[in-house]
Design a protein around this nucleic acid. Structure first.
Length: 295
DNA sequence: TTGTGTTTTATTGCCTCC
DNA sequence: GGAGGCAATAAAACACAA
């Protein structure tokens, strides 16, 4: 790391140089709490011979130009450790399981490393502060990668669910369209039922006309502006169009209303503008029996 | 034992902040 | 300008199948 003035050992040696190779981390496992509890009284310096670094120069300077260890650090480390430490070949060494657990616990508490905490961790673990910083940096990178994977899984699950719902809605829509078509086809047809329908309407209208004057007004066609049709606002629809009521009354009304073509055109219009629930066997069903005339 | 894939450790260069 | 963070990357350490 020449660019930063830090003396770390580069490549060197190989697998064959490490007699402790293939030592699994799981073999060191112990509860995190116990690791934390024991940390202050039992530094990790002597917890494992593998917990050392590949410094080209132990006691070199880190990025900031500080010494890796102060003299007090060395005193804490003990002669045995220092001897082993200085004799290490220049190669990467993995942290012990205890050290990793300790660091994990610390990372869990706070994934950013303030200088004071870095120094404290370095002392606790018997590692150079720089290595603590590197471990946290790599740990943050791993956390970010895993977070991305988690986010992807979450989004993918959500997408799958939404797509399933969408597909189901499409199918439902198709079914409803088919149902509407079927109901329309099962309704009255222009060719087959004209006469029957004409007769039925004659009777109905005749009944209404015979009631009273208001009945006649109600039975009359309603005017409807385009705006109310488009907006579906029925409040605009129900204005009686008295212009269709001629001076001599019922005869004119009957004449127009009872024309089959006129009736069927009105029913077809109603099919276009009213919801399917407004029909029964192809005929509009409403309290205001003749409101559909306005379409 | 060896080849290969994965994980961890460490480096480098660039960037931002103070 | 120094300190520290991050992305990209190299390389060692490790796991595991053949």
């Amino acid at each position: 790391m020449a660019g930063r003035g830090v003396v770390y050992g580069g490549a060197g040696g190989g697998d064959s140089l490490d007699p402790t190779k293939k030592l699994k981390i799981s073999s060191h496992d112990q509860p995190l709490d116990s690791v934390f509890a024991s940390a202050s009284s039992k530094p990790f310096l002597v917890s494992g011979s593998r917990a050392m670094l590949s410094f080209g120069s132990v006691g070199g300077v880190n990025r900031s130009g500080n010494l890796f260890f102060s003299s007090s650090d060395q005193e804490e480390s003990g002669d045995e450790y220092l001897e082993e430490y200085f004799s290490q070949p220049e190669k990467k060494r993995r942290l012990s399981a205890d050290q990793i657990q300790f660091l994990e616990k610390s990372f869990e508490a706070e994934n950013k490393l303030e200088p004071e905490r870095k120094i404290q961790l370095a002392k606790e673990l018997g590692l150079p502060p720089r290595q603590i910083a590197i471990w946290f940096q790599n740990r943050r990178a791993r956390w970010k990668t895993r977070q991305l994977e988690t986010d992807y899984d979450t989004l993918h699950t959500s997408y799958t669910s939404l797509k399933t719902n969408y597909d189901n809605l499409l199918k439902e829509n198709e079914k409803l369209k088919a149902e509407v078509l079927r109901l329309k086809n099962n309704g009255l047809t222009r060719d087959t039922d004209k006469a029957l329908f004409q007769e039925m309407l004659k009777e109905t209208i005749a009944d209404m006309i015979s009631q009273d004057h208001e009945s006649k007004v109600s039975a009359a066609p309603f005017k409807c502006d385009d705006q109310s049709l488009e907006s579906g606002d029925s409040s605009h629809v129900v204005e009686p169009d008295r212009s269709d009521l001629s001076q001599n009354g019922e005869d004119d009304l009957n004449e127009e209303l009872l024309q089959p073509d006129y009736m069927f055109s009105k029913i077809e219009d109603a099919h276009r503008h009213l919801p399917a629930s407004s029909f029964y066997y192809g005929l509009p069903v409403e309290d205001h029996a003749f409101s559909f005339w306005s379409y």
